[in-house]
Simulated scan of single mutants.
Amino acid sequence: MSASRQGRGCKLTKVYILIFVCFATKAVHVELTGDLTSNNYLSALRRFISRRGKPKHIYSDNGTSFVGAYNEIGRFIKDNCNSLSENLAQENINFHFIPPQAPHFGGLWEAGVKSIKYHLRRILGNCNLTYEELNTVLVQIEGVLNSRPLTPLSTDPDDLLPLTPGHFLIGRPITSLPSQNYEEVPSSRLSRYQRIQQLRQHFWRRWSKEYLSELQQRSKWRSNADTLGTGDLVVLKEDNLPPLKWRLGRITAFHPGADGINRVADIRTATGIVRRPFCKICPLPNNKEG
């Protein structure tokens, strides 16, 4: 819900979130829209294209706003095909729709919707924000999702930087301005700006823990599975890290137990070597490739 203004007597209106997910880089783009009409979807699509560039293909479900936008663009191309150059006609966006009643065909964007919607509903609760404030929260959540480490950036054992969706968007990792920790402060003592930062911090705390847990393969440690190797780039599970801050390091040594099974490793980080159990180590996907 979005409020028309701050203070008492404000009018609450329902708003919607439009999520774009890049199939190649897994980058996420979030747009706030007022309703589900085709015109509003086209406006959000134009904002997306103006900032990210025009895509060649767009995949979506069979929502009426998506199908309506496709029909409207198709009518424009048909009515103006004589005045448009051949090159422009060839650069038209190709819309692809999954089969009706088959949301599992869109698993990639459904995962992006879940990442945002699941935690956003829990951190907002009954909080009523203005359109600008809600848009600020969503853009900051977009930055959080695009800061997640995907794979090692290089095979250099001295390189502690991971490849993130932010590298494909701005050429470097996405960072944020430093901010005081407001997680434990009652919302009644915070200003509107501080409340927005508190929402971002709550989202980061919930989502980052979930993402790190997904990187780990949970199994009974009865044998060496060789999932980790010396020199692998890993993410460390650390408490009280600020938003968009990931602690990474490379494994330097293992410490087997009395049964010969490795359960502890030494990791070289930017601040020195630390020793952590495997339950606090999250290997990045495709760590063995290259």
Rank of each mutant, 00 (worst) to 15 (best):
S2K: 09
A3Q: 10
K11I: 14
L12H: 12
V15R: 13
Y16Q: 09
V21A: 04
C22I: 08
C22W: 04
A24G: 05
T25Q: 05
V30M: 02
V30T: 10
E31W: 06
L32V: 13
T37H: 09
S38L: 11
L42T: 07
A44F: 04
R46K: 13
I49E: 06
S50Y: 06
S50G: 14
R52T: 10
P55Y: 07
K56M: 08
I58M: 06
N62R: 10
S65R: 11
F66I: 09
A69M: 08
I73W: 09
G74L: 10
R75N: 11
R75V: 12
R75I: 10
K78V: 09
K78S: 15
D79K: 10
N80M: 02
C81G: 07
S83I: 15
L84N: 01
S85K: 09
E86H: 07
N87Q: 12
L88V: 12
A89E: 14
N92K: 14
P99C: 09
Q101P: 01
A102C: 11
H104C: 10
F105I: 08
G107N: 00
G112K: 00
H119L: 00
R121Q: 14
I123K: 00
N126Q: 14
L129T: 03
Y131K: 11
Y131L: 14
E133H: 07
L134K: 02
T136S: 14
L138R: 02
Q140Y: 04
Q140F: 02
V144S: 00
N146M: 03
P149M: 05
L153A: 11
D156P: 05
D159P: 03
P162W: 07
T164W: 00
G166P: 02
F168H: 12
I170H: 04
G171V: 05
G171Q: 04
R172D: 09
P173I: 08
I174K: 01
S176T: 15
L177N: 14
S179W: 02
E184S: 13
E184G: 01
R189N: 12
S191D: 04
Q201N: 01
L212F: 01
S223T: 14
N224D: 13
A225S: 14
G229D: 12
T230V: 15
T230A: 11
T230H: 11
G231F: 03
G231S: 06
G231I: 03
E238L: 13
D239K: 13
D239G: 05
L244F: 08
P256W: 01
A265W: 01
T269N: 06
T269K: 04
A270P: 03
T271S: 15
T271R: 14
I273P: 03
V274A: 05
P277H: 06
C279L: 11
K280N: 12
N286K: 14
N287Y: 06
K288D: 09
K288Y: 05
G290W: 05
